[in-house]
Amino acid sequence: MKKIITLLSISFLAFLGMAQVGLAADVDMTITPAAVEISAFYNGTSVMVKGRIPANAEAVVRVSGAGEELHLKKKGKVGGFLWMNTGDVTLENAPNVYMVYTPREITDLDNSPARRLSIPALKDRITVSPASEDKDFIVGEFIKLKKKYALYTINDETVKYGAVINGAKIFKVKVAIPPRMKQGIYKIDLGIVQDGKLTKVISKELKVKLIGFPAQLSKLAFGKPLTHGIMAVLVAIAAGLLMGVIFRGKGGAH
């Protein structure tokens, strides 16, 4: 009897699944949690990105931040042997975060289409001024810098697949949110690669925001910078005086 009930339940669930595949679009993506909150003891977190793609496709997930203008110092040799800053360069439209998650190595991934989502593709997006600079070199070094801080990453073999139901398969990937990802709105893209082509990209937003003490402090520092500065100095002086009093207590006659 128990067996029959179990069988019936499975068939029902399978039917439901089929119905959903038939009704909804064949691609979807959900992010859990939908927003990341930064509180006083925050040290980075992760979000789960999952959804459905066609069974014969591959999923590439990309997290990117807003493009920003950045001023960099270029290092070079002076007098043949001394390394120091030899000039300033400005990058525009450089995303503050760029993380790519793939089911296997991106070089295997049907070559060019998936690469359009990956880090080397940034060279087309970022502009470098002055224009006389060697763009490939500057962007290459900039990518190295971002990789060092784990803000630009390629995470191969991280997208996992689940059951295939009626031509659709489940994918999921755990996306790391490093503590260096500041408050802001980030874009999560799901790229579908099919038969060597990037057939579809769907996007959702991920909000990262300060709450509680960090939020209040940030508000004070940017909203009332003079009050913030004076407060910082007074607290520092008070801490120094307090320590002085405590230590005199210790060294005294008691």
Binding site: L70, H71, K73, W83, M84, F137, F142, K144, L145
Partner: peptide, 14 residues
């Protein structure tokens, strides 16, 4: 040492 050793990355944030 900072002046003589070749840096790993040839750009830095200003």
């Amino acid at each position: 040492a900072g002046l003589l050793i070749t840096p790993d990355i040839l750009v830095a944030l200003k």
